[in-house]
Each structure stands twice: as structure tokens, then as C-alpha cells.
């Protein structure tokens, strides 16, 4: 587990992070989310000891974060690149050695990864002869070559082509299943919904929310339900009575409709079922939770209002 305690980082007079404190549990995909310039990259650089905080400290598995810990991390920075004139294998071996592998180990592991991605033929190619997408794969391999316990990916989905994004998402899933921790920074909320188990939302250098994704979505739900039914629309509207309002309604098949309703009070899922089941043939009732994009906007708005 990674514990972040009261981290403050100031660049000249600009506060990049202010007393940020939270834990990152082991074995999950953890998202550090926030708008551009929120301080995500600064925090990630601190986790990698590229930057030293002005105040606060980080603990890894109960001890203060040290160089040995960081060597067991994998890191794909947002500003990423490779030595263009080096050959693929030389590059991977070089970066593997810097992560503490022997030359032979680094070479063996690099070849395994190249084979896994079915690109072993590239081993002797120079980076500058690869396409951007090809180089991205090598970049990703270089960050996980040493079989890290913690993988830190800073904006991994920006700049990568869709095929490589898919590849990265699959690997993130595989790392998680192998019990490793994945720390994932992004401002792209769509990916957070599908990947992250838990997130910390940073805004203007401050932590403004931290919870499991499901909890955050639930906490910020609007009381919307998605209903799919067969029957008359008027009967549907009448059945809702005054407790719900219809947000949208559309026909999706022969005599099959889908609607989104929003509760007016504290009605529950059971209330919806009870009110509709007697009047209509229901095929689906689903509580509609907000996406992380909506949660993100809402949390920041609430925070800004609170600050004012």
C-alpha cells in the first residue's frame, strides 16, 4: 500500500500540491484524476522520486518511500520518448538495467514481451525506423519490463493510437488480476469508468474527493432510472404518477420503449418497480448512475462553491 501524507510541492511561488493525503490500496487500479494543471503529474513525479516534496512524505508498505521501492515501480510518463537512434533491444536492455535487471535478464524479458506483442522482428530495428504506434508499444514494454509491483501510468491513453490503448487496457487488467497495483492518471473520464476501482480527484493542487468509483457515482446520482417496457406510453406516464418525471422516452422496437425517469423525492428502486409493474410489462429497470465525467464536473463545482 502507498500512503501519501500531507504532500506539498511549491514551484517558485506557485503551489502545485497542497497537503495532499490519501492511501492507494494494493492490488487495484487506482485513478488520479483531475483537470489539466491540477497537480497529477507533480504527484506522480513525487511518487517516482523525480521530484522531492517541500513538505510531507510517502510510505510504501509501511516504510518511507526509498530508491529501492521506486526501482520496483514501473513508470510510463506523460512526456515519453525513446532514444531515436538506438535499436529496440538495446533500448529495452538499457532501461531494464537501470531498473536493476542484469543485461541477460533484461534481454530475456524484453524478448518475451516482444514475442507477447508479436513484434520480435523489431528487436534489431532502430527506434527512428518505427512508426509512432510501434514506438508506443516499445515505450510501454520499457515501463513494465522489470515486472514491477506498482505500475504508474501518467495519461497512458493520450497520444496512443486506439489499438495500443486497447492493448494497454488489457495489460492493466492483467496486472490487476496478477495482484499488482496500477496507478493511473488521466483527465479522460470515460476511461476511469471502465478501468479504475478507486480514484482520487485532485483540483488546483488539492485533494477534493477520494473513493471507490462505484461509491462516487452512487453518491452523486440524480435519482435516474432506465426503464424498458412494453405497453402504452400514457399508461406508463400515469403509473409514474407525481413521484417521477420522464426525462426521455423513445421507441426501440415493436411495442418496446425505453425511458429515463428521475425521482422527485426519495423514491427507491423498489418504489419504481411497485409503481410500474402493475401497469406495464417491464423488461428492465436499472438505476442510472452518473458517469465519472458528470461526477467530476459536479464535485469540482461543489468544491468551487464551497471555496467561494
Amino acid at each position: 500500500m502507498i500512503e501519501i501524507h500531507d504532500i506539498t510541492k511549491v514551484f517558485q511561488e506557485k503551489i502545485a500540491l497542497e497537503k495532499v493525503t490519501f492511501d492507494i490500496p494494493k492490488g487495484m487500479v487506482f485513478g488520479i484524476i483531475g483537470p489539466n494543471g491540477a497537480g497529477k503529474t507533480t504527484l506522480i513525479r513525487i511518487l517516482n522520486q523525480i521530484l522531492i516534496p517541500n513538505d510531507g512524505f510517502v510510505k510504501y508498505n509501511g516504510t518511507l518511500l526509498n530508491e529501492a521501492h521506486v526501482r520496483s515501480f514501473g513508470y510510463l510518463p506523460e512526456e515519453r520518448g525513446l532514444y531515436r537512434e538506438m535499436r529496440v533491444m538495446d533500448q529495452l536492455v538499457f532501461l531494464g538495467e537501470l531498473r536493476g535487471l542484469s543485461r541477460k535478464e533484461a534481454g530475456d524479458k524484453a524478448m518475451k514481451w516482444l514475442q507477447k506483442f508479436e513484434v520480435q522482428d523489431w528487436a534489431k530495428k532502430r527506434i527512428d525506423s518505427l512508426s509512432k504506434g510501434m514506438a508506443q508499444k516499445i515505450q510501454f514494454i520499457s515501463s513494465v519490463l522489470h515486472d514491477p509491483e506498482v505500475i504508474i501510468l501518467d495519461e497512458p491513453l493520450s497520444g496512443f493510437d486506439p489499438l495500443n490503448i486497447n492493448l494497454i487496457l488489457n495489460e492493466i487488467e492483467a496486472f490487476k488480476n496478477a495482484g499488482k497495483s496500477v496507478i493511473f492518471s488521466t483527465h479522460n473520464m470515460d476511461s476511469v469508468d471502465s478501468i479504475c476501482d478507486e480514484v482520487a480527484l485532485i483540483h488546483a493542487g488539492k485533494l477534493i474527493a477520494k473513493d471507490r468509483v462505484a461509491n462516487l457515482r452512487s453518491q452523486h446520482k440524480n435519482g435516474d432510472f432506465k426503464i424498458r417496457f412494453r405497453g402504452n406510453v400514457i399508461a406508463f406516464a400515469n403509473a409514474l404518477w407525481t413521484s417521477f418525471e420522464i426525462i426521455e422516452s423513445k421507441e426501440i422496437g415493436d411495442d418496446l420503449r425505453e425511458a429515463v425517469i428521475r425521482r422527485r423525492g426519495n423514491e427507491t428502486f423498489n418504489d419504481v418497480y411497485n409503481q410500474l409493474s402493475s401497469a406495464l410489462e417491464l423488461t428492465l429497470i436499472e438505476e442510472k448512475l452518473p458517469g465519472m465525467q458528470d461526477v467530476f464536473v459536479k464535485v469540482i463545482q461543489e468544491h468551487n462553491q464551497h471555496e467561494e
Binding site: P77, G81, Q139
Partner: peptide, 16 residues
């Protein structure tokens, strides 16, 4: 060149 290639941060993650 390291700056232009954006490789510096990759190295700095492993070396001081």
C-alpha cells in the same frame, strides 16, 4: 537531444 526526444523523464524514473 534527450530533452527533444522526451526521454529524460523515462530515465529519471530509474536514475537520479
Amino acid at each position: 537531444r534527450e530533452k527533444a526526444n522526451r526521454v529524460s523523464e523515462v530515465i529519471l524514473a530509474s536514475a537520479k
